[in-house]
Amino acid sequence: MADAHAHLSAAVNTVLGTVPADSLGVVAIHEALLSVLPGAQYAYDITLDQAKIFDTLASKLRAFKAAGGGTVVDNTGMFHGRDLPLLESLARATGVNIIASTGMGPEENLGGYFLTPQTNPPTPWPADKFADLLAQEITDGMVIPRLERRAPAGLVITEADAHGITPTEVSLFQGSARAALRTGVALSVRWGTDAHAELAHVLGEGLESNRVIVANLDRADAVAEGVPATVAAKGAYVALDHVGQNDGSYIDDAARVTLVTELIAAGHADRILLSSNAIGVAAGLTPVTLPYEFVLTEFVPALRAAGVSDADVQQILVDNPRDVLTVRGGKA
């Protein structure tokens, strides 16, 4: 009964409201539209030219659509430049579905409000407070700081420190998992040094593995240890989300093609997600200027050349993101 209801109302939260899950089309699931390092908005040497930002992003989104793309997920979270009126206007102007995310991380990107609160001693936030803050971004809508709430978030994101998850990030991971569990929205985690141990922090909260995306699994150290396959075997989604980025810390696209074919051969086609982590407009950080359609225009032909079937391509680019982004019945 509950399952039938979930299927009938299968819907995804976009910045313009809920849409039927079947209407997403090809999804670029780990991308950034406007990405602002916390604090860069106050920097004397950075100007956020709203008109120029809109034009840049609109033309990138139109190119994505022209190449067959349907939906872009902005995975910058709630404190890294998320500009909801901008995203809403872009979605309306381009016809591309835009899904915005809630969440924060790593710890070094959090505000002092969460790390050194005005209490004695200044104990960092516990998991339940993060859970409440993040769940509210879904139940009541995403915040425009100190102004108003808009549409519900479509994804919870979080990230561990690259040198190893910190105690506060453990709280943040647990709180993010609780928010996902409570609201039925999926959770995407960027791992620091140990993908399985960090995944365990969120699964330990009772979140089902098929509601979790492990991001950055095309990192060379993860691939060397076979982590993508073992994460998929656990039932979580495996995001190979630096397609087109071929620097030293990630595997290159040729190795990505091999990895995808291996995961498919191992029966994990329904766990694979592909994206590029492009940054449309960056402030305070280095932009990643790949087009949002890079997976479609460059990587899919390479997959096909390696013998990946159309059905598998459809599964990876359309069905898997649809399934993970579909809001499930939350447990209030």
């Binding site: 505000g111 002092g112 409000y113 803050l133 009541d140 915040v143 700081p145 100190r146 709430r149």
Partner: peptide, 14 residues
């Protein structure tokens, strides 16, 4: 005065 990040918590909004 508000700690950075407090603007995300609507309990304080005015």
């Amino acid at each position: 005065y508000g700690m950075p990040g407090s603007e995300l918590d609507s309990k304080w909004w005015k």
